[in-house]
Amino acid sequence: MSTNEINIRLKKLVAGIANQEVSDISEAQALKEIGIDSIGMIDLIGGLEVEFGIRVADEDVGPEVFADMGSLAGYIERKSNKS
């Protein structure tokens, strides 16, 4: 999966969870700023597993990976390349 494709699919997933327009989301934006809260985080982790076929380990659920759209896209790319 290309970086561009990951970004597009991730934006769509996050927009759906936070009830936002895809066009309103930028790659540098913090997830919290977009409106992802603790409940949204559960939906997001489940969504990542379905949308990208990756398994999000408990220890990965932290501010390093889930800081913003860019850090999360990078994580998806790394996990996708491993599997």
Binding site: K32, I36, D37, S38, M41, D58, E59, G62, P63, F66
Partner: peptide
């Protein structure tokens, strides 16, 4: 700050 990362 919040409960975004309950593991923390």
């Amino acid at each position: 700050r919040d409960f975004l990362f309950p593991q923390r």
